[in-house]
Design a binder for these strands. Structure first.
Lengths: 191, 191
DNA sequence: CGGTTCAGTCAACAGTTGTAGACTGAAATT
DNA sequence: AATTTCAGTCTACAACTGTTGACTGAACCG
């Protein structure tokens, strides 16, 4: 009772590729790079390991395809605007979970390519943020905002930390908001 | 030119066990659970894979031994005291890096036992923190402090994020301080 | 219709893994 | 001195890995 009537060569091909990508995304996100095998991906996609190799070249290349993600909205403006933009980006990540992103995060501690991608992404964002933050600590502040964001997504969606795994994104954001503003401000605003 | 004159059976045994534990700690911390092989541990410890198995039973058991870590100073007091205690704990972790802790963190996204250990440790700390934080959001606030702490250690020592990898622990703490206090406070103290 | 392309299948490769067990020789014990 | 214990070594196994290449049959194109 599935939707089909497949048979057109290019159409079949496109479908299998999509199934493989979806299966790979799921498995990489759940198990990480090393524990995800080509065979398991093929089984999950109901196809053959050989096909996976032929269509994507190698396990590494498949991983790279799955973890292609579009960059965040570039933060700009003053410290407060920056904090709000970053909170909004975090909110998006918490609301609409992407297998690609999760695959990347899941493997970032063990797969060098994933680690490098994260480093590069965060570094670029940092530079933009640092420009807008007064004081010579701009880079450090930007990096710590990144770290906090990372920890939050990791804790909620990958580690499923108690008290965070089911939490409503909006409540998370509202608790985090003052903290992000505090981090974004070079000069102490309270005390 | 090494210090030795080994030969006493129990002494030799103790030494090799220590070498194995040290080697395993280093490798688990650098490469994570899956990519660390018994053979590599044995080679690093200049001994035999068979011995590693005999002395520690299994790879899992060896990992468990290596990642035994003593719990943090239990946080107590009001929100501000709690924030300070947690900052101090973070400072300790940043200043004196422990291979056991790093091995645990490195593997927490791919090795279920490591993930569970982290969850349990953080959950227990959270409960204590939550009691002292006013408002019904105590657990969420506690969890987010944990996530931020996790992200900071991860970003600095495991991922080596640009702008964080070489950062002085005290500067990190001073930037994080207002943010931790903001997170610990149930009622908004600033605006 | 005849020939070509190509999605899909299958079997096999070379290497690595955790783990088990037999063996050796020297320290420990009697 | 005779015997037992045990740290250390070596070999082997069964399972699993990414990857390759030969094969099959149906869709495609002339």
């Amino acid at each position: 009772m599935e939707s089909d009537a497949p048979s057109s060569r290019s159409e079949r091909r496109r479908r299998t590729e999509r199934r493989i990508l979806a299966a790979a995304g799921r498995l990489f996100a759940e198990r990480g790079y090393e524990k995800t095998t080509i065979r398991a991906v093929a089984a999950e996609a109901e196809t053959d390991p050989g096909l996976v190799m032929r269509y994507f070249g190698s396990k590494d290349a498949l991983f790279a395809r799955v973890t292609e993600i579009e960059p965040d909205e570039p933060p700009q403006g003053g410290p407060d605007e920056i904090a709000e933009v970053l909170l909004r980006s975090l909110g998006d990540k918490l609301r609409t979970r992407q297998t690609g992103t999760e695959a990347m995060l899941r493997s970032m501690l063990t797969h060098p390519a994933a680690a490098e991608e994260i480093r590069a992404t965060l570094a670029e964002q940092q530079h933009r943020i640092a420009e807008a933050i007064p004081g010579d600590e701009g880079h450090l502040r930007a990096a710590l905002i990144g770290a906090a964001t990372l920890g939050t997504v990791l804790g909620r969606d990958l580690l499923r930390l108690e008290g965070l795994s089911g939490a409503d994104p909006d409540r998370i954001l509202s608790v985090l908001r003052p903290a992000f503003h505090a981090l974004a401000h070079g000069e102490a605003e309270q005390e």
